[in-house]
Design a protein around this nucleic acid. Structure first.
Lengths: 130, 130
DNA sequence: TAAACAATTAAACGATTATTTAATTATTTA
DNA sequence: TAAATAATTAAATAATCGTTTAATTGTTTA
């Protein structure tokens, strides 16, 4: 049996075949949720820092010139998503990147994205590095 | 002269050096804006389809079981961002992926992300493919 | 135990966003 | 030219989101 649902128009494209083999809803939601985590510039900065270091909320806030509640808010989002882990060190809470596959994916994307400093046309050279 | 601004706490991490070499605001905004485009599951589906085909709004809507205005809304966002191009074909408007570096970056990320069907642990194998 | 420091939580606010319904514009064809 | 098809736009709604201020919790130290 042919899974293909015929589309309203036939333009001789691959669209019909593609539509029939579209990944399921849950997969798209998982992936878009992951991308949503790095769609905020503050979170991207936090991840850029924590991909290569571990530190406390105060230092992260100082590095980004942001208030403790604002930093804490994003750390919470990233931790709840499984991208960060935290450990208490005295009065401080130290955060760093998780070691999960999802975290590694994000790490890799960030590394590839920022390897060049993205001044002029910030996208093409980045793409080459991916 | 040392660009490093001393952080409130010293935990012997790389954080101080990282903070001093943080890419500028505009770079982070450009990149987070790009990720924002693929942070919505509907747009991710549209891009998944248009990375490998070109077709009209009606067919895209049929493939995703979405209303024409909803599809049009997202096509407009993606086109305005430079990720899609369109050409009129009679009554229809055909969309496909742009050939810019930014579009290629997104294409590459999507390809790498969806190469495996992401059932069990959908992240690790994807990462390997990047 | 009291004070100081670190971090989180709660409430409030403004801003953005995705979808729906209805109306409108553009193009083709009968 | 009138009707039909395709796509966009507009207005409205509901939902989400990021930041701020203020209050609270947790930990250490004087």
């Amino acid at each position: 049996m042919d899974e293909r649902r015929t589309l309203p128009h036939d333009h001789g494209t691959e669209m019909g075949r593609l539509a029939a083999s579209l990944p399921d809803e849950v997969t798209f939601l998982k992936m878009s949720d992951t991308f949503q985590l790095i769609s905020d510039s503050t979170r991207l900065k936090i991840l850029w820092l924590l991909c290569h270091s571990e530190d406390c909320v105060t230092n992260i806030g100082a590095a980004l010139e942001m208030s403790p509640p604002a930093v804490s808010h994003h750390l919470r989002i990233l931790k709840q998503a499984g991208l960060l882990t935290s450990r208490r060190q005295g009065k401080e809470m130290h955060y760093t990147l998780s070691k999960t596959g999802q975290a590694k994916l994000v790490h890799r994307i960030i590394d590839a994205t920022f390897e060049l400093n993205c001044t002029e046309d910030c996208y093409h050279p980045i793409f080459e590095k991916l």
